[in-house]
Computed example of a mutant assay.
Amino acid sequence: MEYPKYIEVDGQRLELDTDYRTALKCFEVIEDPDIDDVERSLAVIYLLLNDIPKVDLNKVMELLLKYLSCGKAKDEAAGTQKDMDLKADENYIIASFASDYKIDLSSVESMHWWHFITLLDGLSGDCVLNRVREIRTCDLKDYKGKARERMAKAKTQLALPVKMTAEDQKALDKFDALFLSSENRLDDGDTLLDGGE
């Protein structure tokens, strides 16, 4: 299969940085709640094109998002439970590529993003990543007694990290600032007591 190496906008051919690690950096930027939409778009464009071209950037961004989704429509994945995070599951992905394909991702100089995703999608059901994904999506109603307890514990241990929205983070920061402000701190001689003391 021929993977895309460039996008074309307004008659200009713009070469892509196709390495999977670059795409992973793009997703980190896209999911970062501290980056506004304009900065996010410019960062993704710069990462994938190593430049900010003098063409319609909305068209560029549309094509780059299509590239990052491996040519799939946005709503193809809608409605499915998220069972994997490329960053959080990095170690499981590395181990799975090593066991299934004998590929050491740390020594691979370059791998096209679409090829990486094709291999990721083709991992066996026995690899560590897919076993973790299976635990994350299992229905606890299918288990009884001790097996249910073990599976519930495994689901908790292997749960994906909760990503806060920018609003959630601001609220948490506001709470922390209020809680840790000098007016609300205990003096050095003060102690907190349990119960009725």
Rank of each mutant, 00 (worst) to 15 (best):
G71I: 00
L123N: 04
Q169W: 09
A78R: 13
A159I: 09
A152W: 12
E76K: 02
C138I: 01
R13W: 10
S99F: 09
Y6Q: 02
K59C: 13
R21G: 11
D121R: 07
E167A: 05
L186F: 11
V55Q: 10
L129D: 02
D139N: 13
S107I: 07
Q81E: 14
Y3V: 14
D176V: 02
I52E: 04
K144T: 11
E15H: 11
Q12V: 10
K153G: 08
P53A: 03
L192A: 05
L14F: 11
T165D: 04
R13N: 09
E39M: 08
H112D: 02
K87S: 12
G125E: 03
Q12G: 07
T165V: 09
W114E: 00
N91L: 06
L192C: 09
K163L: 05
D173R: 07
S41I: 05
L158T: 00
N184H: 12
G196R: 10
S96F: 09
D126N: 10
K59F: 15
I103H: 03
V60R: 00
D187T: 04
D104G: 04
Q81Y: 12
W113Q: 00
K59P: 06
R185T: 01
L47F: 10
L65K: 08
M61G: 01
L24W: 14
D75S: 05
D56N: 03
D168E: 15
I52A: 08
